[in-house]
Amino acid sequence: MSESHNPSDKELLERIRNKDEGAFRLLIERYESQVAATVLGMLGNRADAEDIGQEIFIRFYKSIEQFRGESSLGTYLTRIAINLSLNELKRRERKNRRFLFIGDHEEKEQLFQSGETDELEQKELRELIQEAINKLKPEFKAVVILRMIQDYSTNETAEILNIPIGTVLSRYSRAIDKLKILLTPYIKNHEINL
């Protein structure tokens, strides 16, 4: 009885293959937070990030036969999320090359250096942290999201990104150094409910 209320991933997949929409809804609800953490971490909390989030689940649904269960469903979805997010970042970069807007960027930069952290609400602080992540190059950002936010190990991160472990460590080291520089004023001056 409890199985029908909380079916395993394997059961859900079987039901989805039989076009059970309810099962697909359950799967989306189960993995929404994991996918959201990856996509919103990579792309920021923007409307187009949700489009990518939707695209991930739709792609998975359409190519469900390709999922052979070699990795966990969460890891598989995270891999799709990372790939689509990297594509989106490339698309944005191409677009930004054509239409270069720097106003908003400069304003955030000033905010980072102002030291007025005590006045910032936690929501704003979250946005600032996201902005710091956004300053990283996409390949570094992917490592940060997987290692720090999704809490994947170095080995798992290497597997998901299909890069050597040494590269993961190197990128992680450089990324965390940059983030430390950007966020140190807030770490020391602002109380966060960790």
């Binding site: 809804r25 953490a37 919103l40 989030g53 942290i129 983030l179 966060i192 409910n193």
Partner: peptide
């Protein structure tokens, strides 16, 4: 501290009724 701060700042959901929107799009 930096690592904990990044982990703290994570977003863990899209806007409400995300599953509905995915199914509608599908």
């Amino acid at each position: 501290n930096t690592q904990q701060m990044i982990a703290w700042a994570k977003y863990d959901s899209f806007k409400p009724y995300f599953a509905d929107r995915v199914l509608k799009r599908l």
